[in-house]
């Protein structure tokens, strides 16, 4: 049984956010919900400024607080290490949202749309894309998201993003089950992200972990994340986010 994990090289990351885009297209996540989010930090004062980036997927922790607090067992740890959410068992308590120190969980307050990127039924959209697609409708509506996966046969790949349930990064379980890497890893133009079996010494993730000093986010919480960061280009304590959340004062 593989022990899946991810390595993110901060020295390679250029902050292009292709990972975020790939995640959204693959998983059709609702507006304002980012399973993968890339934080951009700046520090110093002009002209001595420095910018750094931090891609943040779910950490798929070995000692996951979200699994501990879930009242229904909808959030669980798979044998391969993926922390999954059974959409059929989630009651939307949001305990996982409160417990996760990385803020990776999102609650669906509204009934999501089937396709966030384009309403293919709208004549204007079809007209605009006709020259590009020759009239064909690209399969953005990913049927894999509604399928049941794993030995438990549970709806864990997004489950259609139903209203009233919590969702988060799945490491693209629907791709991993097919032997593919998560969409964010595949899309990264500078190979800053790597995914694979942490127990396999020959895997790319293991090799990259051996080659550099690594750290994990908020290890003081004892969550034992499966996402490892390497590289020296990490934000300092005086760093501030370039984009602040709306309404934030800090």
């Amino acid at each position: 049984m593989p022990r899946y994990g991810m390595v993110i090289d901060l020295d390679r990351c250029v902050g292009c956010r292709a990972c975020m885009e790939a995640c959204k297209v693959e998983n059709n996540t609702p507006q304002a919900i980012f399973w993968m989010y890339l934080f951009r930090f700046e520090e110093g004062e002009f002209p001595a400024t420095r910018i750094s980036f931090l891609p943040r997927p779910c950490m798929h922790c070995d000692n996951a607080p979200c699994v501990k607090v879930c009242p229904t067992g909808a959030r669980y740890k798979r044998d391969d290490g993926l922390v999954a959410t059974n959409a059929d068992a989630c009651i939307g308590s949001r305990y996982c949202v409160a417990a996760c120190p990385y803020g990776v969980n999102s609650f669906n307050w509204k009934e999501p749309k089937a396709n966030y990127y384009l309403d293919w039924s709208a004549p204007s959209a079809a007209q605009a894309l006709k020259p590009v697609t020759a009239g064909a409708v690209p399969p953005y509506d990913n049927p894999d998201l509604d399928r049941k996966w794993g030995k438990e046969q549970r709806k864990i790949a997004g489950g259609g993003h139903r209203q009233g349930i919590v969702e988060k990064c799945t490491f693209c379980v629907q791709r991993v089950e097919k032997g593919l890497k998560p969409a964010c890893v595949t899309a990264c133009p500078v190979s800053a992200l790597e995914f694979g079996d942490l127990d396999d010494p020959a895997s790319a993730v293991s090799r990259r972990l051996r080659s550099d000093r690594s750290f994990r986010l908020r290890e003081d919480f004892g969550t034992e994340p499966r996402v490892h960061y390497i590289g020296a280009a990490r934000a300092g304590t005086g760093a501030r986010e370039i984009e602040q959340p709306k309404g934030a004062t800090a």
């Binding site: 507006q31 989010y37 990385y102 984009e243 959340p245 309404g247």
Partner: peptide, 21 residues
Amino acid sequence: ADRIPASARTFSVPPAVDVSQ
């Protein structure tokens, strides 16, 4: 808290989210 110090940041809130809610 109205403010969370940078040292305690948990990288939790994307800019698209209105935290005032």
